[in-house]
């Protein structure tokens, strides 16, 4: 391959991986924006989404739905819905009693929820990789110098479509408006007659559903799922949220795409390679925290009011 071909290929890969990061980062950012919680369980919700998608998909594979894509879309929607409900449940049981507790308590609660989900899935799957059989063909075609498969193109379009829908939801709907208001000032919102708990629940539903979508899409993309898949993507989604400016949704999307691109190009540099891919994005997080902690789209503001 010529250098130009490698460049194009990595550009596409980076955008695709980055869009997964972006989808997960949105959930982090939304929850952080609204209740100032780093939701550790979010990465495990992504992993759970992939597994629910897998179960739904195996069900559709048995029943005679002719089209492979139809089965995938249906499992994606089922997974998004069920995991959305799970997110709301977690919020209700674990986070809501802690909203007025010291900051440290709610962080430890989030950690406990994450451990609970992660270890439950580990026990249920005996810690093994599970194949994600989609029945899709892997025929590739060329656009100019770029080699593509149908799967990859559809996944990228779907991820961007989901981000677009979310953006419309947050900027146009009443609930989106309430979310943005709560992230500015929770107490005043309550005085203004907004049901804060309801909006927090909706936020968790939307964030978890997007993470589940990313999980199913990652399953389709990589072909396997396992209980450990959430750990590093959780860290990277946090990095993406910080890059874009935490609490800012377009920032999370942008940060995800940017991190995906950086990572995909960095693995081409000699000595970095794929073993060091995770280390690289961590170093990138530290560098961003040092030099641009407010993120690309964030305004410089002090924490104290």
């Amino acid at each position: 391959m010529t250098l130009w071909e490698i460049f194009l290929q990595q550009l596409f890969n980076g955008l695709l991986i980055g869009s997964f990061y972006g989808l997960v980062a949105i959930g982090y950012s939304m929850v952080y924006g609204i209740i100032k919680l780093l939701n550790f369980a979010h990465a495990d919700i992504y992993m759970g989404g992939a597994f629910v998608g897998l179960i739904a998909l195996s069900f559709f594979a048995d029943s005679a739905i002719g089209n492979a894509w139809l089965g995938i879309v249906l499992s994606l929607l089922i997974s998004m819905f069920l995991i959305g409900i799970l997110g709301v449940l977690i919020q209700r049981v674990a986070y809501r009693p802690m909203l007025k507790a010291p900051r440290l308590s709610i962080l430890i609660t989030a950690l406990a929820v994450s451990m609970l989900l992660y270890n439950t899935v580990m026990l249920l799957t005996h810690g093994q990789f599970r194949p994600f059989r989609t029945g899709l063909t892997h025929d590739s075609f060329f656009v100019g110098a770029l080699r593509l498969t149908e799967t990859r193109v559809v996944l990228l379009v779907a991820a961007i479509l989901l981000m677009f829908i979310l953006h419309q939801f947050v900027t146009r709907s009443m609930y989106g408006k309430a979310m943005r208001a709560i992230s500015l000032d929770r107490d005043t919102c309550q005085l203004m007659g907004i049901n804060v708990y309801k909006i927090v629940a909706i936020t968790f539903f939307v964030g978890s559903a997007l993470a589940a979508a990313a999980g199913v899409m990652a399953g389709v993309f990589y072909g396997t799922v396992h209980f450990y898949m959430g750990f590093f993507i959780g860290l990277k989604a946090f990095t993406a949220a910080v890059i874009g400016g935490i609490g800012i949704l377009p920032g999370a999307m942008l940060g995800g795409l940017l991190l995906g691109l950086l990572e995909s190009f960095a693995t081409q540099i000699p000595f970095i390679g794929s073993v060091w891919q995770n280390v690289f994005s961590f170093v990138f997080l530290i560098l961003f925290l040092i030099f641009k902690p407010t993120g690309i789209l964030g305004r410089a503001e002090s924490e104290r009011m």
Partner: peptide, 8 residues
């Protein structure tokens, strides 16, 4: 899992 439940 037990540790997680205890923490929670």
């Amino acid at each position: 899992i037990i540790f997680a439940v205890i923490l929670l």
